[in-house]
Design a protein around this nucleic acid. Sequence first.
DNA 1: CTATACAGATTTGTCTACAATTCTGGATAC
DNA 2: GTATCCAGAATTGTAGACAAATCTGTATAG
Lengths: 245, 245
Amino acid sequence: MPSHVAGTKQVVRAKTDHDGNSLRKAFYEIRELIVHGRLSPGSWIVEADLARHLSMSRTPVRSALHWLQREGYVIEHKNARKSRMVVAPLTKEDAGELYSIIGHVEGLAGRRTAALPKANRTEIATRLRGFNNQLREILTARDSRAAGIFDLDRNFHRAIIESGAGPRLLALHKSIEPQAERYWRLYASSIINDLHLSVAEHDEIIAAIVAGDPDRVERGLQSNWENGCHRLARVIDIFGERGSW
Amino acid sequence: MPSHVAGTKQVVRAKTDHDGNSLRKAFYEIRELIVHGRLSPGSWIVEADLARHLSMSRTPVRSALHWLQREGYVIEHKNARKSRMVVAPLTKEDAGELYSIIGHVEGLAGRRTAALPKANRTEIATRLRGFNNQLREILTARDSRAAGIFDLDRNFHRAIIESGAGPRLLALHKSIEPQAERYWRLYASSIINDLHLSVAEHDEIIAAIVAGDPDRVERGLQSNWENGCHRLARVIDIFGERGSW
DNA sequence: CTATACAGATTTGTCTACAATTCTGGATAC
DNA sequence: GTATCCAGAATTGTAGACAAATCTGTATAG
């Protein structure tokens, strides 16, 4: 190549194949950062910083942030006509609405789970008992490995949703549930101290599924979330809200 | 500037100010195209074509399509590792799940509307009666201006949601409701023929709000959607599903 | 006549460039 | 000492370029 062309383009391109789907990766990684509190509630988001952190360009990061905004993990601090993005704060009011929605979404799914054939229901109940018994063990052992608790509770609820919900409801649940996890993680004590209550509520839900009673399952799930919300509210009152100032 | 640099960049750029927010515009316009059936269910989507149609670059169009995908207006026809986008088909099964979800979301909001102070409730009821009476007029006059019917029914429901729901639930409703509109628009006759049933159900909902009975409001809204779904299912049976082949 | 292979056309995914706007800090006026 | 204004830094929004992947149609071999 002649040397006089050297300065013309010379954009050394680093093989664009960042594995084919950076957007997904960006979405899940950023969500993880938010859910785990590494990006703390109320804090500023700079696209370029995240892009560097994830070692990709701004384009997929940007799209991911828009997803997160639509789902409520991120809100736009609209100054004038430009949208600054901020990690959504955790407030008691928001928690109330969020938990209420999840309770109803799960209630709807649970209702359909209760309508499944008996064979399926007993199979599910067995699985649910497995999760709940593990929770009970942690409880009696005063183990308090918070991480395990989160996962067990999540698995319990997911098992119900996944067996009863169709694709739409499932997607809806998947997009909302991690937001409740934000509250769990940051106000962990609320879950751990009152764990026995939740375990008891789970027992009732299992019984309702075995009985095949949709109303009872729905009520059980709604109560579980509603009560969780009250327990959470107490903790928020004590420790204060985060990211809302 | 030395002449040997003349060929370096020279990208004449046409003032990027497409008004500051092309993404929103792209999202709403494309959604409109889908909801109104201009982009028919099951049909292929090509980013570049849409970009040309909206006279903007692919970047905002692409993001908008991702939003639409997340909300269920568009699905990805995943071949290998690349995502071809397709306008979501309209199926009886999907309608069932969709209507069920909306019924419950509105039910939750309506429940909170029923819990408002009496003064607010009567004010809302007045507004609702306004919409419903207009529907009744169209009905008795055998007017069947479909467009007006859509708007009136939508306004009726929105009035309830907006008075009872918090920001999260409102956003959720806003993202789901237009998807029901897709079914309305394409199977319009299902609404128009049985309009009197819906009007009667609306009356019951109004009465429940006036009475301030959350359970009754919730039941009323859920039934309204559930019955609407049945009416729709009959029409789908007759005319067939669209876009699913 | 059918099946395979290959070349060109399409289309998507990601990157970087650039314009416009907003923010920040410091210098100047009072 | 405080308020105002301006230059430069930082940040966002959009455009367009390119590479990889997929699809399509045609030509060739059997």
